[in-house]
Write a protein that binds this DNA or RNA. Structure first.
Lengths: 118, 118
DNA sequence: CAGAATCCTATACGATACTG
DNA sequence: CAGTATCGTATAGGATTCTG
């Protein structure tokens, strides 16, 4: 009750590391499992929320929304909503997000080659 | 007590996704926070355990060892130990690990540019 | 030197149900 | 259609101590 959060060494390592390691700077924004997968789906162009769900059928709605929000906060994804009566919301990459596509493409290439080689 | 693990839908999504999404195939091996950072440190060449610790001062030993083991299991890193009396252990990238370096380099490039742009 | 062991907490993730 | 809300579990990650 009275303990609010006096101590949070948790995540401090990550913040610190991000200061000097460029890769960890990226991992602070792309960490976890789903974010690169979502970004990968947006490379080809803007997608509606429902399209993203169909494109990634194994993700739960909670994860999709949650990570989309974080990606917006990190300025990697832009959300555009038009207030019509079935709501219409699209997500697309920001410039920073577009600049990140080589990362996902390098991943995809590796996956294709590595799968063959095994 | 009698419940052993009858149900593990957890991770099934990830396995399934890996089947059709190349990026998620990679995330199954590189998921989490530290693995890309470790691999990044090994790009320039083999390193001893203690060198890795110094190179990534914010990681705990547990995390370092644990992820090095998983990277070995995924055949991305090779461990070489010589049984001398202070033990001498080096880690280096396998060919599959080397093939992954464009991913980390793309991350590093993005980090450098994105930091400037903000 | 290179780790293993133990204990603990925070967060990521998932299932399900509900809503403007 | 595009979310929210709630609840539960599994895993990631960290602190500390010990060892061949």
């Amino acid at each position: 009750m009275t303990k609010i959060k006096e101590n949070s060494t948790r995540n401090e390592n990550k913040q610190l590391t991000a200061g000097w390691c460029p890769v960890s700077y990226v991992m602070n924004k792309l960490g976890g499992y789903w974010k690169p997968i979502i970004l990968f789906q947006l490379i080809e162009g803007p997608k509606r929320y429902s399209e993203l769900r169909k494109a990634i059928p194994t993700i739960t709605e909670k994860m999709l929304i949650q990570h989309l929000k974080q990606l917006q906060e990190d300025n990697l994804v832009l959300r555009t909503a038009t207030a019509v009566v079935p709501p219409h919301v699209t997500y697309k990459l920001t410039q920073a997000g577009i600049n990140l596509t080589p990362v996902m493409e390098a991943m995809a290439n590796w996956a294709i080659n590595n799968r063959e080689n095994n």
